[in-house]
């Protein structure tokens, strides 16, 4: 579908990458600062310097995943503009079919090439049957 519509690649992976990197860094700093810099803690005879690093890895791993998961979810919601309470398209009676077994083509008024008549005749020209103008209720 993405290829057919000519959609560009989503920016989400970049957000997730930086989200994960943040988690990794936060986990490292949180442990390094508390366990090495501020209050050196000897656990199991392990050194209290950078060589304690292996002990930090589980938390770094977990926080990387946690932050990545959060950025995936919230980044996605932000990119697609959710949550929003209503959308003018819901007013269309045909629209519910879109989430079942039909396709729905929508050309928004903010599209640069949109004109009320021009778009209608264009859609008719390519064989459209059920063309309707949906307007925001407000």
């Amino acid at each position: 579908m993405d290829v057919a519509m000519g959609n560009p690649r989503s920016k989400l992976p970049w957000l997730v990458f930086f989200g994960g990197a943040t988690g990794f860094t936060v986990a490292f700093l949180m442990q390094f600062l508390t366990q090495v810099v501020i209050y050196p803690t000897v656990v199991q005879g392990k050194p209290t310097d950078i060589y304690t690093l292996p002990a930090f890895f589980p938390v770094m791993f977990e926080l990387t995943i946690l932050f990545s998961a959060f950025t995936t979810l919230f980044g996605l919601l932000a990119l697609i503009g959710l949550p929003r309470l209503n959308h003018p398209l819901f007013a269309s009676k045909r629209f519910p079919k879109f989430s079942d077994d039909g396709f729905f083509v929508c050309i928004e008024a903010r599209d640069a090439k949109f004109t009320k008549e021009g778009t209608k005749s264009f859609l008719e020209g390519i064989g459209g049957k059920n063309i309707e103008l949906v307007e925001d209720e407000i």
Partner: peptide, 9 residues
């Protein structure tokens, strides 16, 4: 890493 970690710890 798990193998290393278990043995190291």
């Amino acid at each position: 890493f798990s193998q290393y970690f278990l043995i190291w710890y």
